[in-house]
Amino acid sequence: MMIPIVFYLALAAIIFSIGLYGLMTQRSGIRILMCVELMLNAAHINLVAFSSYNGDLTGQVFTLFSIALAAAEAAIGFAILMSLYRMKDTINLDSINILRW
C-alpha cells in the first residue's frame, strides 16, 4: 500500500517549522546555519516526494542542484562567521548589532 503524500508533506512542514523556530530563538551563528539547512532539507523532502508521486524526475534533479547550492551557501556562511569570530571573539549574533535604527 502507498503512504499518502500528505504524510511526507506534513513531515516537511514540521521540519521546516522547526528550522524556523530555531532561526528565531537561537543565538549561536552555527546553530542558525544548521536551522537554515534544516529548512532547505524540508523543501528537498517536498521536492523528492512530489517527484516520486508525480513520476517526474525534475524534482530530483532540482534537489540535487539545491543540495549543491546549500553546500555553497554553508561554505560562505561559515566563512562570514569565521571572520566575525576573528574580529569579535564571539558568534553570538545577539551581540552583533551596531547597525540598527
Binding site: 532561526l23 545577539d94 548589532n97 535604527w101
Partner: peptide, 12 residues
Amino acid sequence: RQFQTGAVQNYA
C-alpha cells in the same frame, strides 16, 4: 525605526 532592532533573529 525602532522596529529595526539590529538583532538578526528579530529580522527573521
